[in-house]
Each structure stands twice: as structure tokens, then as C-alpha cells.
Design a protein around this nucleic acid. Structure first.
Length: 997
DNA sequence: CCCCAACCGTA
DNA sequence: GTACGGTTGGGGG
């Protein structure tokens, strides 16, 4: 084990206890053996492992052990014979399961540790401290308060049932004292379940208060006479020895002789067949199926293992070897080999690797021509039913909708296309059939005197088609493949259909190739199929002469629409196997695909804006801008278009002869805010007014005037559109309108936020991550000072300034802190002396000195930057802490500035991208969590702004929802990644976005 | 009508 | 110094 490794220590006894009580008590195998706790234990372990494994960065466990109590005869019993004396014997049906659970642990290929004379907690403590001493991080999987004394910046706990991480702040929040004082607190309060005596009449609240006042137990006992409350004082004085004894009992030993050294705990690959053998013997069919799917094993071909039970009994599998049911869901016949998760089981020599299969698939489709002539038009229900039945047989269908608008909130459904892989041919066949189903095409109306448009002949009635489609789209066992499925999802939702069981070729491409290209269908088709699809404008026209799709002739529509489904299916065939080959299935399935319905719902909900407020603001802005215009013309001596940088440049630097600063790349004088600010500082009156005028007109045109135009005619709300696949780093983007750049920095701009309001009886609740990117940096670069500062909740910029300039945090001049803050941001952006100098308005040499100083104080940051660049050069991409990739194909460019740019972007991407992944996880988790709390009707997530989520919450639910949202966001990285730094979320609720933020 | 450059709003 | 999207002006077709 080495620095940076991550050890997971699972409190096996705690797991058993929780598994046993969480499940119906009398789960028995067919031969009567009780296995409920074994089942619960296996499920919990599997969940933890599949959630935590397989990201390629070293932040998930590198080492793992499951630790059990050996017996109750421990040193504590000798110290205090009454210890755990009131413990009841374990329930009868649990007894035979202890041994099975140890067997289960071995079947999972995990070390199973117990030591005579010591409790599991002592072993955990010993391992935790030993690992910490090496510089590794530790996550203790347990929620037992007895273990909380072990929490440090490097040691966390994780409650896998509640999916909650426990760090220093959580301990303080729960018990009122930091982890290192937990021992004293427990010594005072005692513990009834373990029969630790403590001091009578003192509970956690009083204990925390006393420790706060006196510092620690010894001081408290020494100065007990000072306590004012008579009864309390007497109790403490009389029971001082009991407290001291209790302290001995609750103090975990950190020097237990270790059977296995830390290095022996290294996390091994799963042995699929071995685990399945055990699970079959236990008759856990669901888990057997899951494991078989994950490791791509044929469970039917694996014999149930013979498992020895304590007391000489033998348990074995059922006599009849029932074959596992065929795997349903996305494992369509066409590609059953391509959809398994990439866990485990190495291919034997000679077998094609997943990469070979993916390459072969790509080659097969690139070589095949697309034939339009075979596309069908489906005009009757019986034919449509036959196609749907065929889709049911193959379990796979590509699907595309045609509508009257690019906006899924406004679009009317006009028709849909399907493509099916013909699996009656040999496996690996590239034969595809595709068809278009016109539903809402209209004709007529060219004649001015006719009475408008009529539905074209030969179309299935919309209600019949929707009913048939609903059966197809809502059946999770038939995998629907679409390009940009969020569009179709939202459209279909508006027609009462909730798509379940889907893949999105755009998102698959994004996960595979972010940064390499964009992920539109036409581009993907060119790249992977060597085929140029029919252009939309060739079907519907463009510009003034364009028509909506319902006016397109059905035969033309068939060629276009059926081709889209055809191409989509082919792209899926090519791209999906690459996910397995490149070990990105997990990213796709956990971070990408589940977000589609979440975002669709957010877009569908929209947010209310108060048009009156905007209109009033617009008037004010117009007036103020007009006043500026008069003054500007006066100063310039003529009227001109202030909004034209070209004309403005001529006035300022030509006519008025001000000293021109920089030029833009087209040779024009730059009139950027920076240049104008500099001129203003020199004393020229005009530039300042231009800056102010620009601010006002920007606010007016981009926000107060534009936003009302986005209010939906029916919902009366504004529905933005999120793109999942627009950025290289994993961030979302928002457009039409962009609600991720609503002003906040200036007082004038913030007024716009007051127009974003909650509906009647609701509040807007804004929850935002505090300093998430710096926290991610502290995590990935493992910077001790940063980690400590975040663990202690210290002002991070002040800490940086203090480290760099030797100025104490107390009474620090704001300018010093401001510089440190700029440096911190610079680091995240892949710092350059040029950029930092620009930002701070200082000489480049001075900025260079700052950077040098910074790297001296935080050498880990330089190491991180260098190793990230090296990784990017080596691989052409970088990764977030969850394993999402961002590609930088130009990183080796011979152009130095291009290369430097790519290096900075590559340094930034893991930080920005990891933060983006964390909030994605929070968004995916939040709805189920709220539903569990019974709040899903009362709390609606509306917006995401990179590190902020905005909800609309019923008034009476605000109080209960807020902590749930905060918790979920703060622990969103878990269990995939155990952050070495706590995440902090601030939340506020108010009538409008300005006050809530 | 389309595209690009400049500018500026956000994290 | 990172990542975006929208508006305007202005040039070209």
C-alpha cells in the first residue's frame, strides 16, 4: 500500500446486524436453512462493490477488507466483566448464518478478517491508522458511532444503507464534538447497548456542552467542582472513576496484531463463476442473475457450489439445475455480447477481445451501403402491429419522431420511424429494415379559397397509433435506440407516453469521444457509416420557403425519416460495443443515460417569470441607456452606432486620438471592457460611459427583452433546453433561453433574477456547492493544506494568501486575499503568467513570481499539473474522478500556443468535469431520495447552473426538503468516489431567485 | 439568408 | 488562464 491508495474497511458485523433486521426474518432456502441475513449481506456487498469499482482513476478502493467480531471474550471483558453483559444471544436462526456470511465474503474474493480477543472495531481502528500513516485514505463502511472517533481528514465513514458519507463536519453536526473528542463524550454518556457505565444523568447534549467548556475529560474531572448545577456536579465527582473506566472501554485499540498486512488487502478482481456458484447454492436467483449479467457469465452453466455450514451441516444447491431465464432488457439478440458491463472475467487466450469485436462491427457497417429503396411506409394498424411484434422478438428497435418544431415543448407529433435488425439471418448480420409511420401529414391549403389543411389519406388514426406505440415505448424489455432521445422523450411524454428502456447514440458517442468531434447524427453517420443522410432542408426546404414537416409529402418524408431510424440503429451497432471495449459502460449507464428523463422533466416543468417585472426593468434600462447615449454623442461630437465596435474604435482611437491599447485578431482596435476601463482610469470621460451603456443594453437585449418571448403560450412558463452532449468536460449547457447565464454579479443585473419567481404557495429553493472545484482540486492533487483547510471549514483564499505571503488570516487586507483568490482560480484554469497578470493587472514577471511561490508552497499542485499533462500527451485524453474522458487531440500540436492552450484545458477538464459529474450524480439521486421522503409531489427540480440546483417547493415542505437536498448533494460522489475533502452545500428558499441565491 | 467576429452574461 | 450561449454588427453570397 502506498500514498494515495484507498482502503475500504467494511464492518462485517454491522452489515450482518443491519441485513438481518432489514429483511423479513424467515427467509429460508428450499432445504429450510435460514439465509435471510446472508442474502442481505450479499446484496449490500454487491451494491457497494458495483457502485465503487471500475473507475479508472485511483480514487475508488484499491484495498478492501471485511472485518468481523471473533467472539465476545475480548480484553474489555477482562477490564470490566459487565461489558456487554446485557447483550442477548443472537437469534437462533442467525447463528448458522455467521459461517455462511464468511463464506460469502470469500466467494466475493475479499479478505475476511477476525482476531481472537479483539472486536471488529479494534481491527478496523488498527488498519485505519496504519493506512493513514502511509498516506493512504480510508473509508470505513459503517455508521456505528463507536467508530466515529477514527474520523480524520483522511479517514471517512460511509453509511451504505443511507448512502451517506460521514466526515468531520457530520460528526460535529450529529454529536456536537469533533471526532477526537468522541471518546471523551462516550466516556461521559456511557452506552446502554454495550453496558458501558458512563456518568448517570449525562447524555450526548450535556456531554458535548461540558467538553466544549472544559476541553477534555481529564480537565473536566479535575475541575468538576466548578460546575454550577448541583446534581450534575455531584454525579460527576462521584462517578469520575466510572468515566475513566468507560473511556478505556470505548477507546479503540490501534495496535491489534494484524493477521494480514495492509498489502494483502489489495482489491482483487471478482471471480464471477466462483461467486455465482456460491449464490446458486444459496438460491439467490435475482443476485445470481445480476452477477451473471455483470460478468457476462452463463449462470446456467455454473454448478452450485457445495457450501459447508457450521456444525457439520452441508448446504448445496437444488437438485434440478434450473436454467436461468433469458436475460431481458437491453441484451437484444443482435448484440447480446456487447451490452454486458465490463466487470471481471478475463477472456481466455485466442478469444476476440471486446475491442476486436467493436472494431469488427465498425468495419462491417462502414463497408455496407445504405439502401433507401426498401423503406416502407406503414399506413394501417395491422402492419404497425407486425412491426412492433418484430421489435418485441429482437428486443431492439431504433426509433425517431418527426414533428413540426425543434422545440419539444411546442412540437406537434407528425409521424415516427422504426428500424429493426433482421435477426433471422446469421448473427452479426447487418441487415436492417426501416419504415415510416405518417400520422399527422396534411395536404391542401395552397388554394387561397379552400378551407385550410386536411389530414392526408392513408394514415393510421393518431389515437390508435399512440396506443400501439405506448406498448412499444413503455416496455422496458424492448430497447429503444434514438439519437438525442431527450427530445423524443419529452415529446412522447406530452402525448402520455413515458419511454422506458432506451439508449441514445448521441450520448454514447459523447461518452466515447467528447472533445473529438460533435455528436450530431449527420456527423456520426459520415464518420462511422461513410454515409451522408438526406438533409432536412432538402425535404422541408429552408428559409422563407420552408414548410413544417406535416406539410412534407409522405413519400419524401418516408425516405428521410426511415433513414434516420436506420442510421441510428447502425450507429448503435457500431458505438455500443465500443463502450465495453473502452470500459466506459459505467459512465454511460450511471452518469449519462439516467439524466435524460431527469432533464426532460426539468425542461417540461419550466420556471415562472414575472413579465411585469421584466417589462418595467426594460423601460428603466431603455431610459438610462438613452441618457447615456445623449452624453456619449455629446462627448464624441457626433452620432454613431455605439454598438458597433468598428465605429466606436474609429471615434475613440481615430477622431479623439485616445491611446489605442490592443488590436483584435482581425486588426481592429479592441474596445473590450478591459481596454475601456484602462482608458477611463487615465481620465478620459467617454470610455466609462460606453462601458455603462453596454451593460445596460446587454441586460435589456439579452434578458429583459428576450426572456418574455420564451414564455410558453400554454404553460405560461419558460422552458429551457439542456444539452447533455455539448461540452468537452461533462458540463451541461442551456439554451433557448440560456438560463445558466442570468446576471448575478452587479446590482443592476441581479434585478433580473427577481423576475424568476415561485408559483403560488411555493418557494424557490436554491442549493449550491461551495468552492466545489477547489475541493475537487484538493482531492485529486491531494494537497494537505487544502484538505485540512476544507476539513476545518477555513476560508480557503485567506489560507492560500497566508501560506503564500505569510500574512495572518486575522485582519488580512482584502487586496491580499483577492490576489490569492485570483491565483486559486488561475490554478483551476491551468494558470499562465500571462493570464494571471491580465487578471490582476500586474506585470507578467510579477505574476510569474506568484506562480513560482505558489508551487513552492503547494508542490503537489505542480505535480498534479505535470502528471495530468503527461497523461494527456500519452493518451490523448484526461479523466474525471469518475472516469469520464475528455479528449484533447491537439495536445501534441507543433504550434506552441495551441499546445499550451490544450494543456491548460486538459488540466482544467478533470476538475471542472469531476464537479460536473458530482452534480449530475446529485441530480440523478435527488428524485428517488425525495420520493422516499414522500416529497416528490411537493418538490420539483427546475434548473441546474453548473454548481447550483434550483427547486420549486411547496411552502410547507421547504423545511423538510432543504436538509434532504443538501445531504444528497454533499454526498453525491459516494459511493463511487470517496472524496478526501468534504463537499459543502449552501441552500436558501425565497419567493424569487435573487433572494434564494 | 448565413456566417463570423466581437463582446459579455454565467460557473 | 477553463467551460459555455446570445446579441449585435457587418460582410459575403
Amino acid at each position: 500500500m502506498k500514498k494515495g491508495d484507498h482502503l475500504f474497511l467494511i464492518d462485517g458485523s454491522g452489515f450482518i446486524f443491519r441485513a438481518f433486521h432489514a429483511l423479513p426474518p424467515l427467509t429460508r432456502k428450499s432445504d429450510g436453512l435460514p439465509v435471510g441475513a446472508v442474502s442481505g449481506f450479499c446484496n449490500m456487498l454487491w451494491k457497494l462493490l458495483t457502485d465503487a469499482r471500475d473507475t479508472s482513476v485511483g480514487v475508488t478502493p484499491t484495498h478492501l477488507a471485511v472485518i468481523f467480531d471473533y467472539s465476545s471474550k475480548t480484553f474489555r471483558k477482562e477490564l470490566y466483566p459487565e461489558y456487554k453483559a446485557n447483550r442477548q444471544a443472537p437469534p437462533e436462526e442467525l447463528v448458522p448464518q455467521f459461517g455462511l456470511i464468511r463464506e460469502a465474503t470469500r466467494a466475493f474474493n475479499l479478505p475476511c478478517i477476525e482476531t481472537e480477543g479483539f472486536e471488529a472495531d479494534d481491527i478496523i481502528a488498527t488498519y485505519a491508522r496504519a493506512a493513514e500513516a502511509i498516506g493512504a485514505d480510508v473509508t470505513i463502511v459503517s455508521s456505528d458511532k463507536d467508530l466515529m472517533q477514527l474520523v480524520t481528514p483522511n479517514v471517512h465513514m460511509y453509511d451504505s444503507m443511507k448512502d451517506k458519507q460521514i466526515g468531520i463536519p457530520d460528526v460535529i453536526e450529529k454529536w456536537g464534538v469533533p471526532p477526537e473528542k468522541m471518546i471523551d463524550l462516550q466516556a461521559l454518556t456511557g452506552d446502554s447497548t454495550d453496558n458501558v457505565p458512563g456518568i448517570p444523568g449525562i447524555g450526548p447534549k450535556t456531554a458535548a456542552q461540558l467538553l466544549e467548556e472544559f476541553g477534555d475529560l481529564d480537565t473536566l474531572l479535575a475541575r468538576a467542582e466548578e460546575i454550577k448545577q448541583v446534581k450534575r456536579r455531584e454525579n460527576i465527582v462521584a462517578n469520575a472513576d466510572r468515566a475513566r473506566l468507560s473511556r478505556q472501554l470505548v477507546t479503540l485499540k490501534t495496535d491489534v496484531p494484524l493477521e494480514l498486512p495492509l498489502d494483502a488487502l489489495v482489491l482483487e478482481k471478482q471471480d464471477g463463476p466462483k461467486l455465482i456458484g456460491f449464490l446458486k447454492a444459496m438460491e439467490f436467483t435475482t443476485l445470481t442473475r445480476r452477477v451473471a449479467e455483470a460478468c457476462d457469465c452463463d449462470a446456467g452453466a455454473i454448478e452450485a457450489a457445495v457450501v459447508k455450514v457450521e456444525r457439520g451441516e452441508t448446504a448445496h444447491g437444488p437438485d434440478v439445475d434450473k436454467r436461468e431465464p433469458a436475460v431481458s432488457g437491453e441484451a437484444g439478440a443482435v448484440a447480446s455480447s456487447s451490452v454486458a458491463t465490463p466487470t471481471t472475467v478475463a477472456a481466455s487466450a485466442g478469444d476476440p477481445t471486446p475491442a476486436d469485436l467493436a472494431a469488427a462491427r465498425a468495419a462491417a457497417f462502414a463497408a455496407q451501403k445504405i439502401d433507401h429503396s426498401a423503406y416502407e411506409t406503414i399506413r394501417d394498424l395491422a402492419t404497425l402491429e407486425r412491426w412492433i411484434a418484430a421489435a418485441g422478438e429482437t428486443g431492439l428497435v431504433a426509433f425517431d419522431t418527426e414533428t413540426t418544431s425543434l422545440d419539444p415543448m411546442q412540437a406537434e407529433f407528425v409521424g415516427f420511424s422504426l428500424a429493426i435488425a433482421d435477426n433471422t439471418r446469421a448473427p452479426g448480420s447487418t441487415d436492417i429494415r426501416a419504415a415510416y409511420v405518417p400520422l399527422g401529414h396534411r395536404t391542401g391549403g395552397e388554394d387561397l379559397f379552400s378551407d385550410g389543411l386536411k389530414l392526408a389519406e392513408g394514415q393510421i388514426p393518431m389515437p390508435d397509433a399512440l396506443a400501439a406505440l405506448k406498448r412499444l415505448l413503455e416496455d422496458p424489455s424492448i430497447l429503444k435506440v434514438a439519437q438525442n432521445l431527450k427530445y423524443d422523450y419529452l415529446l412522447m411524454k406530452r402525448y402520455g407516453i413515458v419511454i422506458e428502456g432506451f439508449d441514445d447514440t448521441m450520448l454514447i458517442s459523447y461518452v466515447l469521444d467528447a472533445g473529438k468531434s460533435n455528436h450530431g447524427m449527420d456527423g456520426l453517420s459520415e464518420r462511422w457509416l461513410g454515409h451522408t443522410p438526406i438533409a432536412y432542408k432538402d425535404v422541408a426546404g429552408s428559409g422563407k420557403s420552408s414548410v413544417t414537416f406535416d406539410r412534407v409529402a409522405i413519400d419524401k418524408a418516408t425516405a428521410y425519416a426511415a433513414e434516420d431510424a436506420d442510421v441510428t440503429l447502425r450507429l448503435w451497432m457500431v458505438l455500443k460495443p465500443r463502450l465495453v471495449a473502452e470500459k466506459l459502460t459505467r459512465i454511460y449507464e450511471r452518469l449519462e443515460r439516467p439524466l435524460v428523463p431527469v432533464l426532460a422533466r426539468m425542461e417540461e416543468r419550466g420556471i415562472t417569470i414575472d413579465r411585469q417585472i421584466l417589462s418595467r426593468l426594460s423601460g428603466e434600462l431603455a431610459q438610462k441607456a438613452a441618457a447615456f447615449e445623449d452624453e456619449i454623442y455629446e462627448l464624441a461630437g457626433e452620432r454613431f452606432n455605439i454598438g458597433s465596435p468598428k465605429q466606436l474604435g474609429d471615434i475613440l482611437f481615430g477622431k479623439m486620438g485616445l491611446p489605442g491599447g490592443s488590436k483584435t485578431k482581425t486588426g481592429q482596435w479592441s474596445t473590450s471592457a478591459q481596454v475601456l476601463e484602462d482608458l477611463a482610469a487615465e481620465g478620459a470621460p467617454l470610455p466609462r460611459k460606453i462601458v455603462d451603456w453596454r451593460q445596460l443594453t446587454k441586460l435589456k437585449s439579452t434578458y429583459t427583452d428576450a426572456l418574455p418571448g420564451y414564455v410558453h403560450p400554454e404553460t405560461k412558463r419558460v422552458h429551457t433546453s439542456y444539452s447533455l452532449a455539448a461540452t468537452t468536460t461533462g458540463r451541461l449547457s442551456s439554451s433557448e433561453p440560456n438560463l445558466q447565464n442570468i446576471p448575478v454579479r452587479t446590482a443592476e443585473g441581479r434585478k433580473i433574477r427577481t423576475a424568476f419567481i415561485a408559483s403560488q404557495g411555493h418557494k424557490l429553493l436554491s442549493a449550491d456547492y461551495s468552492q466545489i472545484e477547489l475541493r475537487v482540486l484538493a482531492h485529486v492533487a491531494e494537497i494537505p493544506q487544502l484538505r485540512q483547510a476544507f476539513a476545518d471549514g477555513i476560508d480557503i483564499h485567506a489560507m492560500t494568501a497566508s501560506e503564500m505571503f505569510g500574512v495572518p488570516v486575522e485582519g488580512m487586507p482584502s487586496e491580499v486575499r483577492r490576489r490569492a483568490k485570483a491565483i486559486n482560480f488561475g490554478i483551476i484554469y491551468g494558470i499562465s503568467a500571462f493570464g494571471l497578470a491580465n487578471q490582476l493587472g500586474i506585470e507578467r514577471s510579477e505574476a510569474g513570481d506568484y506562480i513560482k511561490k505558489y508551487f513552492e508552497r503547494f508542490p503537489g499542485i505542480r505535480d498534479y499539473m505535470e502528471s495530468t499533462k503527461a497523461f494527456a500527451r500519452e493518451n490523448g485524453y484526461v479523466e474525471t474522478i469518475f472516469g469520464r474522458r475528455a479528449h484533447y487531440p491537439e495536445i501534441k500540436s507543433s504550434n506552441p500556443s495551441m499546445r499550451a492552450f490544450n494543456e491548460r484545458a486538459a488540466i482544467n477538464a478533470p476538475i471542472q468535469g469531476s464537479a460536473a459529474d458530482i452534480i449530475r450524480r446529485a441530480m440523478i439521486k435527488i428524485e428517488p431520495v425525495l420520493a422516499e421522503a414522500g416529497l416528490n409531489e411537493k418538490v420539483r427540480m427546475l434548473l441546474q447552473v453548473h454548481d447550483e440546483l434550483i427547486f420549486e417547493v411547496e411552502d410547507e415542505a421547504v423545511e423538510s426538503a432543504m436538509p434532504i437536498i443538501v445531504q444528497t448533494m454533499e454526498h453525491a460522489a459516494m459511493p463511487a468516489v470517496a472524496m478526501r475533502v468534504p463537499l459543502k452545500v449552501d441552500a436558501r428558499a425565497a419567493m424569487n431567485w435573487d433572494e434564494a441565491h
